[in-house]
Every structure is written in structure tokens, then in C-alpha cells.
Nucleic acid binder design. Sequence first.
DNA 1: AAACTCACCTAACGCATGTTTGGTGGTCTG
DNA 2: CAGACCACCAAACATGCGTTAGGTGAGTTT
Lengths: 218, 218
Amino acid sequence: MTTPAPVISTEQAMLRFLVAAKPPVVPPASSTRRQILETAIRLFAEDGYAASSMRIIADACGIRAPSIYEYFGGKPELLIAAMTEVLSDFQAFIRQVVDLDLLPEQQLEQIVRQHVTWQVSFAERAGAWDSLAAAHTLEKHLEADQVEVFNGLRQLYLDVVTSLVAEAFPGPHPVLRSRALLTLCDRTTAWAESNETPTDQLADQAWALGSAALRTSF
Amino acid sequence: MTTPAPVISTEQAMLRFLVAAKPPVVPPASSTRRQILETAIRLFAEDGYAASSMRIIADACGIRAPSIYEYFGGKPELLIAAMTEVLSDFQAFIRQVVDLDLLPEQQLEQIVRQHVTWQVSFAERAGAWDSLAAAHTLEKHLEADQVEVFNGLRQLYLDVVTSLVAEAFPGPHPVLRSRALLTLCDRTTAWAESNETPTDQLADQAWALGSAALRTSF
DNA sequence: AAACTCACCTAACGCATGTTTGGTGGTCTG
DNA sequence: CAGACCACCAAACATGCGTTAGGTGAGTTT
């Protein structure tokens, strides 16, 4: 299942990541469609796929279930659209701070801070404490080939982070250390001792914990 | 929702944790009951609550759905039994290495290693990559008061770890740093670059990453 | 041997689900 | 003003769900 994970060059990883920015295939254009999508994102993340029936999603939008079929082919398709929307949004947000001219450690810090910032906004958008755990749960309901598409997109991001970690914090197990760093980014929001902790402070904490852990020698 | 999290003394936290070891209220005694319980643990963790119907669970045990009602009052009760079993098993396993005479840092290392070891065995038992994420998803299907019971038990463990962290690695935000440490314990298994990585090595990695992060100064 | 217990079963219940059919009313367009 | 289009809907469908009722047959007890 897992390969020995060759670490590609930072430049190559970043270029691949940047190039994956495609305009959405179907422009939204309809506000009802948009509302259904946002509601689905929130309910799927909060309550899970099975617990969010088409009727419940529709009611939350002020419409009836059959109307959803005007915009989406069915429930699985709605799930794919919701997950695609979230993943694309995340990667576009990260792309804003990708800069080939930054030093590796500075680039890594920028990405960590942007990641934490996005996570805070996702928690507000979807009411979910952990976007990655939610995604993993939801993927149980998808076909294997669709899961591969999402994993491929995530891998582009993981490659960027891994190559930066390997450059900025040389040492063994760069993949494992990258995953640890990204988990800190995903979860720091949920660990906050108060809901009013400012985002900047959460980003500080994630980077402090993460950069310390990255200096680990095994 | 969250209090300023007073850190209680290590001794007090450990005693509370140890004292919570009660014999199960209902002795299993029946092998069919045991098989249903283990199957439910696996399917709930792998596929989720809604996707694991009574018929599917029963079929996996070689019986028919109504027979489950000979041993459990219903599906929610089966879920509670499954989660109680897993949480009790985990805490009993941790209890084996709780030792009031150890130095805080040594005690913490023992607990981290035991935690990682348990996580590996849980992954084999239930096919799930993250017991805590699975638990959080499943708790959506429980009544609030039952969730509180589980949270109370988890808090006993978190208190032990937090007090040890505060003693062994003095600094601000002991609760946040403890949660980060425990997340490393939960997830290191899933990050392994191969499924054949020996448990000892996973424990090494978790403790290396964790103890490095704990030295963080904010 | 009769009575009882036990583990399990088949059949069926009411209900919620995803989805399809066949509209309805309003707004543009000729 | 007729007709096309659009966004939406009520009603119905087959299916699968958790659960209950009632029964069967083997093993034990009296």
C-alpha cells in the first residue's frame, strides 16, 4: 500500500501543486445550488453522511428534497461536490502563500500559519473540529476511484510540505514528521482552551509545537 | 464550555485514575455475546454506526438479527457496550504502567509507549486508523448524558497526562501540550511508512516527536 | 416421559430513506 | 397573448432499517 515515499524536490513539488489550480468545471451561477452545497458541507461534516438525509438538507435550505435533483445527480454526487469544494478551497487558500523565492523554513512557517487560519474558518463554516477526520469518515461512502482522486490532490500538498521539511529540518523520516506537522495544523484549533483564542495565537502555538517536533532526532 | 483547566496534582490524578477500575457490571460469560460485541466494535469503527445494520452485524456472526436482542437491548445499547468495552480495555492497559514511584518524565514515557502499543493492537482488532476519531464520530449517535460518562473517563486519563506534562516539562499551556502529545500517540500508527514497522519503533517515534514538542516555549 | 429452559429462528410491523414521475405556477419571449 | 421555460413541488415507488411476536427444536431437569 505505501511506497518508500521518495521525497521530490521542493521546486518540482510546488510547481505541481500550483499547476493543479483549475477553474471549476461547472460554474455555480445559481444561488440555490450554492446554498445546497454549503448546507451539505455543513451537515455532512457535522452529522455525517447517513444522518444527513436529502429531506433534511433540503429543509435546511427552505426547499423540498426533489429540488436537489435539479442541481445534483444524487446523494453520492452531492457528497463528491461538497468534498471537492472544500478541498479546492483549502488548496487555493494555501496557494496564496506559496512562494518559490522564500527560504524553506520561512515557507514552511507561512504554510503552517495559513493552514491553521483555514482550519479556523472551516470550523466556523462547517461546525466540525477536524476537517481531515470528517473527510476520512465521509470517504467511506465513495467509490474507490473517487477516493483516489482526492488522495492524489492531497498528495500534491503533502509533497510540498515533505520536501520543505526535508530541506529546512534535515533528518530521517521526513514523511512521518510532515504528517505530524500537518496533524498539528489540523487539530490545534480543536485544542484551543477557549473558543475566543485569536487565530494568530493558534498559529503561533501550532508553529511552536511543530517546529520543535521537527528538530527531533530519531 | 471549556474551563481554565486547573492542573491537579499528579498523585491525585493517578489515584483517581486507578480507582476508576471497576469490574464490568455484567460479566460476559456467553461466547455468542462476546462475538457480537467484538464484531460490533470492528464494524462500528470500520464502517460507522449507520452503515453497520443489525442484520449485517448478525450475519458477520453467523446468526440472524433478532438473536442480538437476546444479549443487548437494542442498537444504541450495543453501541454503548462496544464503546465502553474499548475504553475500559484501553484504560486497563494504561493502568498496567502507572507507577507512583517513577519520575514524571519516565512515567510519561512509559504511558506514551503503552498508548502507542495499545493503538497498534486496536488497529488490528478494529481495522481503524484512529480510535479517537472513530469514537468522536460514534458519539454523535448517543444521548448527551452517555457522552458525558465517556468524557468523564477520558478526563481522568487526560488529567494524569496533563499533570505529568506540567511536572516533567514545565511551561505554559500544559493542557494544549498534553493534547498534542496524546494525538501523536493516537496517530503515529497511521503514519507508519509501512504496516510492518515494529511497535517498538513506532513508540520510539512517538516519544521522540512528543518529548521534543513538549520542550516548546511559547 | 413430561415439563421446562435455552439459543435461535422466520415473518412481519411501522418507518425513513433515495429517487422518479408528473405536474404547478410564475416569468420570460415570440 | 400564446407558448416555452424555469424553479419548484406533492405524491408515490421500492428498499432497507430497528424492532417485535411468536415459534421450533435440542438439551436439561423433574
